[in-house]
């Protein structure tokens, strides 16, 4: 096994493309190192991208934010502007593992790892984030939704890496929230989760909504029917009921050691409803 720590994205891409064996990208390493320790992956080459300075910053861009692939979750917490604008996303990043893990783990790593239960991903999908992918053939911008393709899989070519995430500009009266269910308070993995982003008008009517669900399908879901259930409403009891029903109806979960189909389906609706209530309150100005 070889280890490389290039200083530029181009060099990282070149190394990945030139490797005949199995190459893995290392950012925080909180998934990769565990997988290596348990023998699930045995890479021939590890490309550590943490020394690529361009990938370690959070910057304002086009009214939104660009978050480099090597930004650890805790750095998101420390960015006051990001936290004030996207509290739900930052809360999601702060649910991954533990405080120690969050000092290393990155949101991009969480995305590329391809876990259907990834905490960072439903919030990114709800936020309508895009990722910038750099490869030998150039750069492309892709919806977050299109990066994971199934458990442990993503849509990147072998010589591509995600360089950054872009969170779009959002209207002033917007709010987001991410909730997950875990049996423990922390150091746990989502049994089911929901991310909600809403925008309201001056009267408090929802004009735009994106609702995503985690751990209820092979990959994160963006549920149009959930958006429809609440757009045009003031999130009254009827709208909340319709939202929960739409979320449950969209679930295609499995039975496993963490939860049953029945349980995930039911709780997805509960969490979508609760996340919508918080996102809505935030859109209306609640702290």
């Amino acid at each position: 096994m070889r280890f490389a720590a290039p200083a530029t994205v181009e060099e990282a891409v070149r190394l990945l493309g030139a490797e005949p064996g199995h190459a893995k990208v290392l950012a925080g390493g909180s998934d990769l190192i565990v997988q290596m320790k348990t023998g699930r992956v045995e890479p021939d080459l590890i490309v550590d991208i943490k020394r690529i300075s361009a990938m370690r910053t959070i910057t304002a861009e086009a009214g939104g934010f660009r978050i480099g692939a090597c930004v650890p979750c805790l750095a998101m917490e420390e960015n006051a502007s990001l936290k004030a604008t996207w509290p739900g996303l930052v809360e999601a990043a702060r649910l991954i593992g533990s405080t120690q893990i969050q000092g290393r783990a990155t949101l991009v790593g969480n995305l590329c790892n391809g876990s259907p239960a990834a905490d960072g991903v439903p919030a990114l999908v709800a936020a309508n984030a895009k990722v910038r992918i750099v490869g030998a053939k150039g750069t492309r911008e892709v919806d977050v939704l299109d990066v994971p393709t199934g458990p442990g899989k993503n849509s990147l070519a072998r010589d591509e890496i995600v360089e950054s995430i872009h969170l779009p500009a959002r209207s002033a009266h917007s709010g987001d929230c991410y909730l997950r269910h875990t049996p423990r308070t922390e150091m746990d993995i989502a049994v089911v989760s929901a991310g909600v982003f809403v925008t309201v008008d001056g009267a408090g009517t929802i004009t735009h909504a994106r609702v995503s669900l985690g751990a209820v399908a092979p990959k994160v879901l963006l549920v149009e029917a959930c958006s429809k259930a609440i757009v045009g409403t003031k999130l009254d009891a009827k709208a909340l009921g319709a939202l929960a029903a739409a979320a449950s109806a969209a679930c295609k979960p499995i039975d496993d050691k963490r939860g049953t189909v029945e349980y995930r389906t039911k709780v997805a609706g509960v969490l979508a409803r609760r996340a919508a209530e918080t996102a809505y309150a935030r859109a209306k100005g609640a702290k």
Binding site: P183, R184, T185, E186, M187, D188, I189, K257, R258
Partner: peptide, 11 residues
């Protein structure tokens, strides 16, 4: 220990 859940401090 991920799926055999002993309580953590905050639990």
């Amino acid at each position: 220990f991920l799926d055999y859940r002993i309580p953590v401090c905050s639990d």
